[in-house]
């Protein structure tokens, strides 16, 4: 479904601040696969997601989604294939617009915008049904401005927006990191529910090693722009957090100090 081949991304090329964020990364995701991504701060996890989403061009390598080579496509041209949820709950929605208006735009992710009215009663029914899965009562607030919602509610809405039109690949970048523990748990539950319901192909970055092993069916670890560990199946089932940390230091050939990876409690 998703193929990243030899991805190289260098920031500030040719300056003192030159920074290789991705070093020849190869990654292949099968349809329906749910991959979790862990790694220390600055390992290149967000950069990996950003290149898949097309926020900036690669220096080398290629990306294809569902057989389509999207390497040269800008972000908005890939949006018909990809949907994503950002870490910051404010980034995924338009605050000055209503819940229904935000959902209209999400509904049009993979089709052309028309000069027809965005909201009609058929769509409102569709939106209510999609929102009801959250159990937050948002289905009764279609006309409310999104700016009135809490961070957790906005993130939940963003998840619904991301799955309203089934994407080929769903990108989640620490999408619960900015929320309080209780809300974060709620959002994780919603995430699981939606992924299962639509059988989505997912790339999820998390700083929570527990979550990384608990969710999904495959885990990779990144460090300094490389994938240093890639586990699935039996190997992953047996994996513990300690094992993960050990694997990491072995792969790197260096000791891992505790602060290299942020362990969420």
């Amino acid at each position: 479904m998703l193929k990243v081949k030899g991805a190289l991304k260098v920031f500030n090329k040719g300056t003192i601040n030159q920074n290789v964020a991705l070093r020849n990364v190869d990654l292949e995701l099968k349809s329906g696969e749910f991959l979790t991504v862990v790694g220390s701060n600055g390992a290149g996890k967000s950069t990996l997601l950003n290149t898949v989403a097309g926020n900036f061009p690669l220096d080398k390598g290629s990306i294809s989604i569902d057989g389509i080579d999207v390497t040269s496509f800008p972000d908005y041209k890939r949006a018909n294939l990809i949907s994503r949820v950002f870490q910051d709950p404010l980034q995924g929605t338009a605050a000055s617009m209503t819940i229904a208006e935000n959902l209209v735009l999400a509904l049009k992710r993979s089709s052309r915008l028309s000069l027809k009215l965005g909201i009609n009663s058929k769509r409102e029914e569709e939106f209510k049904e999609a929102l009801s899965i959250l159990g937050l009562g948002l289905e009764d607030r279609l006309g409310d401005k999104v700016g009135l919602l809490s961070g957790g509610q906005r993130q939940a809405l963003t998840l619904v927006m991301a799955t309203l039109e089934k994407p080929k690949v769903l990108l989640l970048d620490e999408h619960t990191a900015a929320l309080d523990p209780k809300t974060a748990k709620n959002i994780v539950d919603i995430t699981k529910k939606l992924i299962k319901e639509y059988n989505l192909t997912v790339l999820m970055v998390t700083h929570d090693l527990n979550q990384a092993l608990d969710l999904g069916d495959r885990t990779i670890m990144m460090d300094k722009g490389e994938i240093v560990l890639d586990i699935s199946g039996k190997e992953r089932e047996k994996m513990t957090i300690e094992g993960l940390l050990e694997q990491f230091s072995r792969a790197r050939g260096s000791r891992l100090s505790n602060d290299r990876i942020l362990l969420a409690q």
């Binding site: 989403a53 972000d75 949907s83 980034q91 338009a94 605050a95 049009k108 992710r109 028309s114 965005g118």
Partner: peptide
């Protein structure tokens, strides 16, 4: 008023509100 309620109009409003979001929804800002 009518235009700003159409799909295209809503995308225009969103462009003024949150470029990152509307680009991720496939709109050329």
């Amino acid at each position: 008023d009518w235009f700003l309620r159409t799909e295209l109009g809503l995308a225009l409003i969103a462009t003024g509100d949150n470029k990152k979001m509307i680009r991720s929804l496939g709109v050329n800002t």
